[in-house]
């Protein structure tokens, strides 16, 4: 098709290409708009549920799941209930506490390990690489009981510190993405710094880190948001009854998933989801540029 067209006279070709281009752009926009609607549809539903305040004829808030998409009545009662009648504010602070500390520790750990694995050569390097690959293949939750009791031996169960420890300790294995990033940095940069008399630590802090902003932010972003999303490990470590210690994910989980739960709290649950999502989503959006670079670096080098 294309070839035939390019054989035609110049002016006609010019116009038809222009027209084709314009219509293809229109189609592209149409597809993008359609896809965006599909992608936003479930997210909007959560938001709408959080401000859905329909009452039944006995003036009782209908908090169950309903089958209409757009609420018939809007209001902020769910948020009021969330902050007054649940421990949500406490859960929020807990999560902030855990993620603030664990993201610093994990980022440090991940980056140093990645750098060492990428740029230094030493005897057990290959072994460590293989160990990391192998360990990554075992399903994690089988070892949850073991981790619970190891934490107990350290007198840490049912505390937020235990969570911090577990999240940070796992960071040593998640160095692949950052390693991929460091691999691209030319060795000559390091060598010249070494010739100037800088030691390895200095090279890392003074040469490597300043040019690694994307990967630092990428690693930190994932480490920071992790505790807001984990409802499996945190549940085992913190325990069900210890509600004051819960993180948002665990607290919200127990709101909805139990054998004897009141399913009339669904709208309150979604209000909680919205509050959790706001900081995380805005962080992601603000750091989007670096996140893309991180994702690219990591996946390409595998």
């Amino acid at each position: 098709m294309m070839k035939q067209m390019s054989g035609a006279q110049a002016p006609v070709k010019y116009r038809s290409v222009k027209a084709a281009e314009r219509s293809s752009t229109a189609v592209s926009y149409l597809i993008l708009i359609l896809l965006s609607l599909i992608w936003l549809y479930p997210i909007l539903w959560i938001i709408l549920n959080s401000i859905r305040t329909e009452y039944n004829d006995q003036n009782q808030l209908i908090g169950i799941v309903v089958s209409h998409y757009f609420p018939k009545q809007l209001g902020f009662e769910n948020f009021v209930n969330l902050f007054r009648n649940t421990l949500f504010p406490r859960w929020f602070l807990n999560t902030l506490f855990v993620s603030s500390i664990s993201f610093v520790l994990s980022t440090l750990l991940t980056l140093t390990v990645a750098y060492v694995m990428s740029k230094l050569r030493f005897s057990f390097r290959k072994k460590f690489l293989n160990l990391a690959i192998i360990l990554g293949l075992f399903p994690g939750f089988m070892s949850m009981i073991a981790i619970y009791y190891i934490l107990k031996a350290l007198q840490l169960t049912q505390t937020l510190f235990a969570l911090i420890l577990v999240y940070s300790a796992g960071a040593g294995l998640g160095f692949y993405v950052a390693k991929g990033f460091f691999d691209i940095i030319p060795n000559s940069l390091i060598e010249s710094a070494r010739l100037d008399g800088a030691n390895n630590a200095k090279v890392f802090t003074k040469i490597i880190l300043p040019i690694s902003k994307p990967i630092i932010i990428y690693t930190a972003l994932l480490a920071f948001t992790g505790p807001w999303m984990d409802f499996i490990f945190a549940r085992v470590i913190l325990g069900e009854t210890n509600r004051e210690m819960h993180t948002v994910a665990v607290g919200l989980y127990y709101m909805l998933y139990g054998e004897r739960v009141d399913s009339n709290v669904f709208t309150i649950f979604t209000a909680g989801c919205v509050i959790v999502a706001i900081p995380i989503v805005s962080l992601f959006l603000a750091m989007q540029k670096y996140y893309i670079e991180g994702v690219t670096a990591g996946s390409v080098k595998g």
């Binding site: 992608w39 999303m229 989801c273 999502a277 995380i280 989503v281 962080l283 992601f284 959006l285």
Partner: peptide, 12 residues
């Protein structure tokens, strides 16, 4: 638009 999906916790 699409990054929002990544950022949103999956349990939500």
């Amino acid at each position: 638009v699409f990054v929002i999906t990544i950022a949103l916790p999956q349990f939500i």
